[in-house]
Design a protein around this nucleic acid. Structure first.
Lengths: 196, 196
DNA sequence: CTAGGGTGTTACCGGTCTGTAACGTCACGA
DNA sequence: TCGTGACGTTACAGACCGGTAACACCCTAG
């Protein structure tokens, strides 16, 4: 698994990818820098030559995660060019897929749970990235011709966020199993009352 | 704050309440047993005379939290005896109140995020307690005469869970601000299609 | 008065954590 | 060939962690 990352690439990239994977699986406070560097096939000194601190590494990991999520949106546009409603349904399918594929939630949400200090440097980054994702979903709903685009986007956001937490507490057979039905029902309902 | 707990009561109770408060605010891995006992006005040895380990203390805290949540349901029944629909609306109001009052999420969900080891003793307790809460909401919806009671209960659960996460990432002014409108709209919608 | 249980105090163990210092090694480019 | 910079290795500092041992204390029940 991490071996794929360990193969020849630059140490900084290996550290970043390995840290992302390990933070995701074991939590931020559950992973030490020694474990990260060892899994990345390097050592602690090299890590601290590329990152100011563990907090800095955490922030870079979150930015990388957000960047990958951004690529997902571009894939939707590439698959259904101009068809915003189809892209919205693609988002629902992708979300459901993530729920089943991986028993851990959103890296940013998980980080917010773990990093409780109000002035932790990662908190502002998390807020910024989460707000950008929300804006993107709102825009998609609006461009799909849905009347109360903000309300639908926020509802879908909370549903997905809740589902990602739910799989961590009761597993994939719990309430999150109904996510697609809930989301599709909401979209139908909002389209019905649309004033596009 | 903790001083209220520190006043004369039995050490075990003070430790439990203080630990609950500190775990809630700072996370489980963000609080050491020394800090807990000091805030509780006692010492580490007394803690380990009453609890086998920190993990055991965590589990007892989660059970205490679930117990308090259970008392909330009884308060609904006391306030609106027999009127299940009114109790459902009371649940929505209470949920919204919790969202605004406290920027941290559900203790059980947060614990599930932090305790990533699949066989951690707290994980089965979290699952058990979360499933019990879900059953309660399903029963309430069904007794309120709603047709697809499970689906509404699961949707409301995910919405609330998501909102509690959202306040931790983007604050109370984000998507969670619309929680009441979402929940009330869902109840109306499900009552419309009811086949009670 | 006395015995005992609950509690407080101090010191400690072994481990882990983030972060740094000092030094060695190796490849590559001028 | 030389030197420069990236990387690896070892050792360590200083703090914190969960958990335990040994002992002193005090209140209360008998």
């Amino acid at each position: 698994m991490a071996d794929g990352v360990v193969e020849r690439s630059r140490p900084r990239d290996r550290i970043l990818e390995t840290a992302r994977d390990m933070f995701h699986k074991h939590g931020i406070k559950g992973v030490g820098v020694d474990a990260i560097t060892e899994a990345a096939g390097t050592n602690k000194m090299t890590l601290y030559r590329h990152f100011e601190s563990k907090d800095d590494l955490i922030i870079e990991c979150l930015r990388a995660t957000a960047s990958k999520a951004g690529a997902m949106w571009e894939a939707f546009e590439a698959e259904f060019p101009g068809d915003k409603l189809a892209q919205l349904h693609a988002w629902v399918r992708k979300a459901a897929e993530m729920l089943k594929a991986d028993g851990r939630g959103c890296d940013m949400a998980n980080a917010a749970v773990e990093l409780t200090e109000p002035d932790h440097p990662a908190r502002s980054v998390i807020k910024e990235l989460k707000e950008a994702q929300r804006d993107r979903l709102v825009t998609l709903c609006r461009d799909a011709g849905i009347g109360q685009a903000e309300l639908l986007a926020d509802t879908l956001s909370l549903l997905f966020e809740g589902a990602r937490v739910s799989v961590q507490t009761v597993g994939t057979e719990g309430p999150s199993a109904q996510f697609v039905r809930m989301a599709e029902g909401l979209i139908v309902s909002f389209r019905g009352t649309a004033a596009g």
